[in-house]
Amino acid sequence: MAFFISRGRSPRLAPELDDAELGKLLKRLVPTAGTGTAGGVETGVAQIARLLEQDPAAFDRRAHRFAVLARFLSESRLPAAWAKREPHKADALVLHAWSDLEQGRGNGEMTDAAAVWKRCLLAAELAPRDPAPWVVMLGVARLERYARQDVFAVWNEIVARDRWHREAYLSMLAYLGPRESGSLGQLLEFVDSVRTRMPANAPCAAVELTAHVMQYHSARARGGAEELLAGNHWRSPQAAELLERARLMWPRPEFFSHAAAVADLNLLAYALTAAGRRREAVPVFEAVGGRVTGWPWHLDGEPLDCFKSALGKAR
């Protein structure tokens, strides 16, 4: 079976995934993001605004673009400059707030959580149907360890606007896990509550597999006998059934249509490799097309190296 790598497409880290327009914008922003000139900021802001304005009702695509841009610009003055220039433009406020959230995640705390929250509330007033401001607020509430009722109140605002919002489901999965405010039992209860009602190709379809990867790595992190036996997790009936179902459906062309489908395929390739089902991972690697995500590969080391190693074993 011919692999993509034999056709000259070497694996690379691709935060934009298969969003070609976003990828082109990131390349154009490289010389602009760090510049302090007014012309550079103006050019960058105009390019970002055009991309985000393409389809204001495509919440899934917009969330992906906001998340990638926020991470890329978390150390840049562009988001703040845009919000200052257009203080009543929802997209500008959301990007500024989201980039501040990403910076806070890197630092372990927010510099001014109240100001970020205020910007999100204003953005929510300006764009009442858009879940994006509430997604940022959910991230702030988690990072700042707000009361549980406040976290769930924000969660309810998101799903009222976008029932299967990928970022929101993954955010709540982490929040309810033992590393934040919950436990393994709460995490599994959350997964059980959504998997029977969720469409198989929903944007948040990877929630269950994400939970399994979290459990697998939790066992590995405990060391000793549990680390040695962690691979047995993938032989449990529930995990094995999930992998079988996902490997048959997810790589199919057009099965997924959400913006982060390539990220979910990376997750599946990782899980199949961890489970020792390397031959079955071959079609998944082909569907990934060399577009590598940081998570979950970084759990085992440098993401690109880990991806290439797993690819080589699958071949």
Rank of each mutant, 00 (worst) to 15 (best):
V194G: 09
V116P: 01
W134H: 12
S76R: 09
L143N: 04
A113N: 03
A174T: 11
A141S: 11
S76Y: 01
A174L: 09
V159K: 07
S99K: 02
L78E: 05
C120P: 03
W117H: 05
V191Q: 10
L187R: 15
S171D: 09
R148K: 11
W155Q: 07
L122N: 06
W98V: 00
E180N: 14
A97D: 07
T111H: 14
A80Q: 04
E125V: 11
T196A: 15
A168L: 05
P199G: 13
F152G: 06
E109G: 10
A200Q: 15
L101M: 02
M172R: 10
R71S: 10
A132W: 09
G108I: 00
S183I: 05
H96R: 11
V159D: 08
V151E: 02
G106M: 05
Q103W: 12
R119E: 13
V94T: 04
R163F: 06
L176G: 01
K89Y: 15
A97G: 03
A168W: 01
A67I: 08
P87C: 00
L188R: 15
D91T: 03
R62W: 00
R85G: 10
H64D: 07
L173A: 02
A200D: 15
E109M: 10
S99F: 10
L121W: 15
A123C: 07
R179F: 14
F66A: 01
A81I: 00
L95K: 06
P178C: 00
R166N: 08
E157V: 05
N156R: 14
P203Y: 13
M110L: 09
G182P: 05
V194I: 12
D162G: 03
M137Q: 13
S193N: 08
A141F: 11
Q186N: 14
L138A: 07
D192W: 15
L93D: 09
S74A: 12
L176K: 02
